[in-house]
């Protein structure tokens, strides 16, 4: 589904990603862990198409497309969803209008008719229940004045609404209370199917109790320095990252 080969990216001349290799197949869950500033969010942003980062080397194919030939909106419509580490507030744009526009634009891209208002509202009601999102939140402007946890839950709600093929969740678990964590994980698991995949960026092994990863990768200084099964997460939780850094020349 997604194949990243030797990906290098920089911002304002500063190299952040220094040769990432990663293969994600349908049905898989990949966890990416790694210390602060190692490049996890940068990787997620590059995959979603943020143009502040410049790709200098490497190749990314997604569902047979050269990813870099697609605009962010095309990537989204082709099924890539980025759950933002820091969701953006958009005063004056209502959640309903935002989601309706997003959903219908994605449908348009696929050659489908826009959803009728009643179908849209029904769809929204279902997904709101799935992630136990407070009804009031959808009546407000996008993320405006949402608490940290509400913003994260709203990311999962959007994911549920848009039903992506590849979900990249950047620290969606940070700032969530235990109940919210369970709900978020539940949301992710409900979307899981043999045809889609997720990349879950997290600092905490805790999330991986709920979302069981097939692979765990450690990103350090712009490179994946270790990959393993879910037991790698436990090892990291226990020992930190230092033992992995040894032997790496920085």
């Amino acid at each position: 589904m997604l194949s990243i080969k030797n990906l290098h990216a920089n911002i304002e001349g500063k190299e952040i990603l220094k040769g990432i290799n990663l293969e994600v197949k349908e049905g898989e869950v990949h966890a990416i862990m790694g210390p602060n500033g190692s490049g996890k969010s940068t990787l997620a942003s590059v995959l979603a198409g943020r143009d502040m980062f410049t790709v200098t080397e490497g190749k990314v194919t997604y569902m047979g497309h050269n990813l870099f030939e697609l605009s962010p909106e095309e990537r989204a419509s082709e099924g890539i969803f980025l759950g933002f580490q820091y969701p953006i507030e958009i005063p004056g744009v209502s959640m309903v209008n935002f989601m309706k526009t997003a959903l219908n634009e994605q449908r348009k891209h696929k050659g489908l008719e826009p959803l009728s208002s009643s179908d849209f509202l029904k769809h929204m009601r279902e997904k709101k229940e799935l992630v136990e999102l407070d009804t009031n939140l959808t009546n407000r402007s996008v993320n405006e004045g949402f608490s940290g946890g509400e913003k994260k839950r709203n990311e999962i709600f959007q994911m549920a609404m848009l039903e992506p093929k590849l979900a990249i969740l950047d620290e969606t678990d940070s700032g969530l209370d235990i109940d919210a964590l369970r709900i978020v994980a539940n949301g992710v698991n409900k979307l899981k199917s043999p045809h889609n995949a997720s990349i879950v960026i997290t600092h905490y092994q805790r999330l991986l109790d709920y979302i069981i990863p097939d692979y765990v990768h450690v990103l350090y200084d712009g490179k994946i320095i270790r990959s393993g099964g879910k037991e790698l997460a436990f090892e990291l939780e226990e020992k930190g990252y230092d033992w992995l850094k040894k032997g790496i020349t920085v």
Binding site: A48, G49, R50, S71, P72, E73, R75, A76, S77, F81, L82, F84, P87, I88, E89, I90, V93, F98, M99, T101, A102, L103, E105, Q106, H109, V142, Q158, L162
Partner: peptide, 12 residues
């Protein structure tokens, strides 16, 4: 905000 919307599939 522009990027956030585009990342949801809303054209520029």
């Amino acid at each position: 905000a522009m990027f956030y919307m585009r990342a949801r599939g809303i054209p520029k």
